[in-house]
């Protein structure tokens, strides 16, 4: 059974603006999937739907077996705890230390502070920022902030990582480092869905969906391309 399943999903905003139109796709557990396309193609909307930030206007969307249209508001947080989100806008809290930011997903689930701190330090070590635990996020570079976001996304051992343009505004080396990290988590069995318009990154993908004007126009897998 697919871990993420879109079946004829459309998302229409007020004013009849169609962000995505009749999208059907399936993502299996453990895959590293890229959503490709120009700005405004609907990549971010797809990720928002996957994260339960928005509910589809029509169609069926299942995340880890949960029908997102049927999902009760009170159950949504428990589903989100199985996801790791890396958002396009910097979503770090600038009035808290890097360590406190990374501890947040664990505090939310009621972990003991000592345990949360220990796990957050491990996550920061994995992204190479163990020495930055005590600093405030705004004093870090863009690449470092993105790595903190990654540490926060993986600290609670999610089943799926959703990353919206994780390499945007990063230089080539930082982008490669971020991608290396995401691939390492994918190699450890975590499903990763990454939106990007940077074609250089696609060599790592196990599946690529190409979006244009809110529709999937092609699906590429290593070695072949399927036009849709």
């Amino acid at each position: 059974m697919s871990i993420i399943l879109f079946s004829d999903v459309s998302q229409i905003y007020p004013g009849e603006i169609r962000a995505i139109s009749h999208v059907s796709l399936a993502i299996e557990e453990g895959e590293l999937v890229f959503l490709m396309g120009p700005s405004g193609a609907g990549k971010s909307t797809l990720l928002k739907l996957m994260a339960g930030i928005e509910t589809p206007s029509s169609g069926v969307l299942q995340i880890i077996g949960q029908d997102m249209k049927q999902l009760h508001r009170a159950a949504l947080p428990y589903l989100r705890r199985k996801l790791g989100l890396i958002l396009q806008q910097n979503s770090l809290l600038n009035d808290r230390s890097v360590l406190a930011n990374v501890m947040l997903p664990l505090m939310v689930v009621g972990a003991k502070p000592e345990e949360a701190e220990q796990r957050a330090r491990v996550a920061l070590t994995r992204v190479g920022l163990a020495n930055k635990a005590g600093v405030l996020p705004y004093s870090l570079s863009g690449g470092e902030q993105q790595r903190v976001s990654i540490a926060r996304a993986i600290v609670h051992k999610p089943r799926i990582i959703l990353a919206d343009e994780p390499t945007a505004n990063l230089d080539r080396d930082s982008a490669r480092l971020v991608l290396d990290m995401l691939q390492a988590f994918n190699n450890a069995g975590v499903t990763c869905v990454i939106s990007t318009h940077d074609e250089r990154l696609l060599e790592r993908a196990s599946k690529i969906f190409v979006l244009e004007h809110g529709r999937i126009t092609a699906m590429r897998m290593p070695g072949n391309e399927v036009g849709l």
Partner: peptide
């Protein structure tokens, strides 16, 4: 908002 996205309940 961030807490909500990370799975915080009401």
């Amino acid at each position: 908002n961030v807490s909500r996205l990370l799975g915080a309940t009401d």
